[in-house]
Design a binder for these strands. Sequence first.
DNA 1: TCGGTAAGCTGACGGCATGACAGGACAAGT
DNA 2: ACTTGTCCTGTCATGCCGTCAGCTTACCGA
Lengths: 215, 215
Amino acid sequence: MTGQVRTVDGRVAGRRGQATRQKLLDCLSEMFGSSPYRDVKVIDVARKAGTSPATFYQYFPDVEGAVLEIAEEMAKESGELADLASGRSWVGKAAWSASEELVDGFLDFWRRNDALLRVIDLGAAEGDKRFAKIRLKILGSVTSGISDAVKELQAKNRVDKDINAAAVAGALVTMMAGVASQPKAFQAWGVKQAEVRPNLALLVHLGITGKKPAR
Amino acid sequence: MTGQVRTVDGRVAGRRGQATRQKLLDCLSEMFGSSPYRDVKVIDVARKAGTSPATFYQYFPDVEGAVLEIAEEMAKESGELADLASGRSWVGKAAWSASEELVDGFLDFWRRNDALLRVIDLGAAEGDKRFAKIRLKILGSVTSGISDAVKELQAKNRVDKDINAAAVAGALVTMMAGVASQPKAFQAWGVKQAEVRPNLALLVHLGITGKKPAR
DNA sequence: TCGGTAAGCTGACGGCATGACAGGACAAGT
DNA sequence: ACTTGTCCTGTCATGCCGTCAGCTTACCGA
């Protein structure tokens, strides 16, 4: 699918080249966890990878370019999210456990990749289409899964027809993403971590089925 | 309340000084709207304000310091948000219009200040306590307003007692904030702007009252 | 074994941002 | 006009950015 890996100046990267390239990506990933986005410098990444800034620019046009690379990688892993909403039963008790699992799976995924996802969110919000595209790829599968669930319930007359399934799905996904990326806020509001998940699951259940869960 | 405005080296700023200081802040605000956070440079702000970088460093330790200043200013204006949730009736038809007005007011506020709020969110998510504090100040009033509404309904036995009011309120506020900061995402999911607000209001209504709105 | 070729890496450079300082410009009062 | 205190900027050292030429390394066919 993707052609060979190429350097900025057009040469094809060999074994060794790909290794250093990957090492640079790894170091950059790690860096996002430890220092603010604004302070991530090429020279630091290069030093950490035991190479020079010039080498970095052989493989990436700039820091953003490298970030996009990492993000693409993560987007591939985000396929696991799709199963959290698709192919589930959203009726009765099954709907409640589906909500719980959706919230759990989503929050876990987000917390595993929080630093990177923050950067993607920022880029997308600032209007960068490349970041927006990746964000869509990551969230799209869950969103359409939820959207389909709502539409199915609408078809069975279990949910009002004048609800826009996609809008509700998008809002619920956005809610989960937001909650996952600001865990400290809930602490400040006097909410324990353990309390967040069930209450979030409740809101998801309410949003999808329009009813209180039957536990 | 706040003491006199002081320069970095401790002198008190006079009339003229405060004027240039303010101009720098204004130019910085404007800059956030037009260029990515990562690329905002002191020299650009200074040039835009018709002064020199040295002057900037007279009044602010760095870009972040200035951002915090602007953010504090905005936090003061965020008092208007408090009235969107407090002192409203959350029963029957009144609850529906309260939901609509809450969503409208919140989204408008967020979109008016989106660039700055993005930066605050990022700072808070990255663990900077100063930004987290400001974020709390902005969102706290709405959150506690919603939280109180839920608690009141719980007291009247109209909402289950095992719901954590603060957790639900926080999640709803986070949802609104997330939706406001990523309007493009909904477009990509095929949802028109006009569709977002009513569906968001529906979710807010469901979350607070636990019931579908009586329209 | 031995060039030849392409890949891989780095030193070094001009350019720009940062941050500190001293001294000049300015306004207001005497 | 002179003084005083505030305000601004020229200048400098430092450090990062992004690029290039050129050196080293690995691979390959003869």
